[in-house]
Design a protein around this nucleic acid. Structure first.
Lengths: 184, 184
DNA sequence: CGCACTAATTGGTCTGACCACTTAAGTTTG
DNA sequence: CAAACTTAAGTGGTCAGACCAATTAGTGCG
């Protein structure tokens, strides 16, 4: 008998990703068979395949005819996957957007040379999370990067979940950054 | 009656793309219905859907429940919207594109596991900047990332400013990468 | 032990059905 | 006559069950 169609396409992707995490699968592990997944997630095998195809496309899983579906090797930092999914679907979970923002900003930190001026500037705005992060990104002086960041950040602010970092974390950033500075 | 399974997944994508071209569809046009496509291409509707899903991921088509499947306004990924708008509206700074490329390629280096095969492959093409970088990116095995890189790289090549890295830098990359490999 | 063969497992495809949404045609109503 | 409503056809979304194709795990024999 045909049941209700409660779950959407993106929902099924999330279901599988959640299951991967919950069952503590590590790269290289084999996922349950498509038939098992369908049973477990209470969706049809066709829907399972559709979701797996997407995950495969995003480079998260890999399928081998007759062999099974495997979690891709190398536990990538996930930001490529997240960026891809975000850009493609624009329906990423709040946690993914947050993680993406963090990665972008960490990239910025690793790319920008820590000068005294920059450190001073960041310290003057350290009390405001939004301004702090924006100033950091703007230091990159790369409009392309700034635009991508802005796009992701816009979604983040739409979430209305407050600050991305705590004051302590921001202080920690600056401190770590200072340590990266050249001896002069 | 079940027929022969002559066509593969990627083959079906090509079939549909070919059909789009042959029937002179332009952005905004509606594609034939899934049932029609299945009939025309002599494949099952399930396979049509699978191919359409991929095209949708690539931002080539867009499906509307009950409405139909449409050729996207711009034959690019949605993320390209960002890039396109940037390129068109703002003055393209060569330095931004170059920096973006370098960021992407550095990301690739940090994501890919350095195996002997990969190192050998890169060393065989180390003399050609373009091929070297392309081989690197292709190692990621992530179609979306590859497309992002390709798009940015296309702009870069339009700049006609020569190589992105010097031979010494490429050698340095491989050397650094080798150091990241497991001790074995 | 090892090789060949067999059976079970798993992904790949097909078919036909029903559900949910959209669109457009037809009907009613002001 | 035009606007609002109703209805039917069309389309994507999902489901179930079956069979094909490739791989893998056993099994038996030499």
């Amino acid at each position: 008998m045909h049941e209700k169609h409660a779950s959407s396409f993106h929902g099924n992707i999330s279901k599988i990703r959640k299951l991967i995490v919950q069952t503590s699968l590590v790269p290289g592990d084999r996922l349950p068979s498509e038939r098992e997944l369908a049973e477990t997630l209470s969706i049809s095998r066709a829907s399972v395949r559709e979701a797996l195809r997407a995950l495969s496309f995003l480079g998260i899983v890999e399928t081998r005819h007759g062999g099974g579906t495997f979690l891709c090797e190398q536990d990538r930092h996930r930001y490529i996957e997240i960026l891809s999914e975000f850009i493609v679907t624009k329906q990423t979970k709040a946690t993914d957007i947050i993680e993406m923002l963090r990665l972008l900003e960490r990239m910025a930190f690793s790319e920008i040379e820590p000068t005294k001026e920059r450190l001073d500037l960041l310290e003057t705005v350290i009390d405001d999370d939004r301004t702090f992060r924006q100033q950091l990104i703007f230091q990159l002086k790369n409009e392309l990067f700034i635009r991508i960041w802005s796009e992701v950040n816009r979604f983040f602010e739409g979430l209305d979940v407050g600050d991305l970092y705590t004051l302590e974390e921001r202080k920690q950033f600056v401190e770590t950054w200072r340590g990266m500075g050249m001896p002069e």
